[in-house]
């Protein structure tokens, strides 16, 4: 019964993979290739999701992150290859971004809510707040402090991993270490993106 449904699901996902890959093999433009590769990635996430267990949900996260990370690096290489580096990026003239107290209030709300949530989702919410705040300001920020925080939170996560593996009786400490580590890491990574997005003076 489940086996039947599984094969039907595979038929659909593999069919879309065939369509995506065919498009990719015919496409000549580099930017379109990048976008199509991102589209084809969805097929692999579909195949993982078809396992249909909690394990599948835990495997989707690495699959998704690998795709996003490589797209980020490749789009930066694309910008350099095509000499699009020096073009000034204008911050969109949205009313909320122009009024001075509004970004502060909004990003404070987002960051506080993100810290209450904690973990990966919380990091994304709080990071969005930080990104919003940085995007609304005109002068550029120092990257090094953010990078240091991001590196340290990564170390915290790795330490939590070793506690889980070798001192399993301290699982609560490790859980909190991992949750705080990923919270800080996602916040800093998202704000780094905000800084990179900002126009160079």
């Amino acid at each position: 019964m489940i086996g039947d449904q599984y094969s039907w699901g595979l038929l659909v996902v593999l069919g879309s993979a065939v369509i995506g890959f065919t498009a990719l093999s015919l496409e000549k433009d580099d930017l379109h290739r990048l976008l199509l590769v991102d589209l084809v990635e969805i097929a692999s996430i579909g195949i993982i999701a078809l396992i249909g267990t909690d394990l599948a949900e835990a495997l989707i996260l690495p699959g998704l992150v690998v795709g996003i990370a490589e797209i980020l690096a490749l789009s930066q290489i694309y910008l350099m290859k095509e000499d699009l580096q020096d073009r000034p990026v204008r911050i969109p003239a949205i009313e909320v971004l122009q009024e001075s107290p509004a970004p502060l209030i909004l990003s404070t709300i987002l960051i506080v809510y993100g810290i209450i949530l904690s973990g990966f989702t919380g990091g994304a919410v709080a990071g969005l707040g930080a990104l919003f705040f940085i995007a609304a300001r005109s002068r550029s920020e120092d990257l090094h402090l953010l990078e240091l925080a991001s590196g340290l939170s990564w170390v915290l996560w790795i330490a939590a991993f070793f506690v889980f593996m070798f001192l399993p009786e301290y699982w609560y400490l490790a859980l909190m270490g991992a949750a705080v580590g990923i919270l800080i890491k996602v916040i800093t990574k998202m704000s780094l993106m905000g800084v990179m997005w900002e126009a160079e003076p």
Partner: peptide, 9 residues
């Protein structure tokens, strides 16, 4: 990047 599709799949 495209290689991750058959790999993870």
């Amino acid at each position: 990047l495209a290689g991750t599709v058959p790999l993870f799949g």
